[in-house]
């Protein structure tokens, strides 16, 4: 590399870094809109209230980020490419019929084998509880969905291709799309009932839409939609990063289309 260019980069990096640290330490916080959020009570979990009610549209955007990321991961691994010769050259036909073809996939000890199945079941339960309690306890769709995906990952790591919990990819694709669509449709319902997109309506035809001690309105449903979506997205990401055979199948499929 060019030493002069290196020096210039180093100097600008040092100046920039020093400035960032110096000015960050000068920050004096103005609470501003926070006070309004704290004084207007929606649900007991104030963060959830912001996430799904005051700024629910941001959360929709965040869902879309995740869904776009998963779509692009599919593209990277050979879905719908205009030209797949580069990938075909890299991913040769599989030697074994198993889905997970990591090299030197050794056997785990018995303790791991016997514990991971019950653990994964209980993790799923815990994830479901976290999703459903999003409006009253610390938690919510993202955390719960991540927990369920974690149980999938645990199961895959412990058992490899014979994983007892197995989401096949058509199911994951559908679940993901349906989760995001459910979010959008709930938003439109709010638009029909209250006049604004993602309006939080608590009753419909005189019935509570989420019966219980806390009138949370649409927030629990949004939590469920997000939970299913996150579960699907994270599982797909793991699926793609670990299962080479899926990629090879995908490339073969796109070969037929391109011909």
């Amino acid at each position: 590399m060019n030493p002069k260019r290196d020096l210039a980069i180093t100097l600008s990096f040092l100046i920039f870094g020093a400035n960032i640290i110096y000015y960050l330490m000068q920050i004096k916080v103005n609470p501003g809109v926070n006070i309004i959020y704290l004084k207007n009570y929606i649900v007991p979990n104030y963060v959830t209230a912001i996430l799904f009610d005051w700024r629910g549209y941001d959360t929709l955007g965040e869902c879309l980020v995740l869904i776009v990321a998963v779509m692009i991961s599919w593209i990277i691994f050979g879905k719908s490419l205009y030209d797949n010769s580069f990938l075909k050259e890299l991913f040769k036909a599989p030697e074994v019929g198993e889905y997970i073809t990591l090299q030197r996939w050794g056997e785990f000890t018995l303790a791991i084998k016997y514990l991971s199945l019950p653990l994964s079941i209980f993790l799923v339960g815990l994830g479901i509880v976290t999703i459903l309690g999003g409006h009253i306890t610390p938690g919510g769709g993202f955390q719960g969905g991540a927990l369920i995906a974690a149980s999938f990952i645990l199961s895959i790591i412990a058992f490899g291709s014979n994983s007892p919990l197995w989401f096949d990819h058509p199911f994951l694709e559908k679940l993901e799309t349906l989760g995001a669509l459910a979010y959008i449709i709930i938003g439109f319902l709010g638009m029909i009932i209250g006049g604004y997109y993602l309006f939080n309506f608590k009753t419909i035809f005189g019935l509570d839409i989420f019966p219980g001690p806390i009138a949370a309105g649409i927030i629990p449903y949004l939590n469920i939609a997000v939970g299913l979506k996150v579960l699907a997205s994270l599982s797909t990401a793991i699926y793609l990063l670990s299962c080479e055979k899926v990629i090879i199948e995908r490339i073969e499929k796109s070969d037929e289309i391109l011909k």
Partner: peptide, 23 residues
């Protein structure tokens, strides 16, 4: 912040559109 979220979507989408070429 809403602008930032969609900004990130757009930058991902741009990368994705280029990946479609497959080279």
């Amino acid at each position: 912040f809403n602008l930032y979220v969609f900004f990130e979507i757009v930058s991902m989408v741009q990368a994705g559109l280029v990946f479609l070429s497959g080279t």
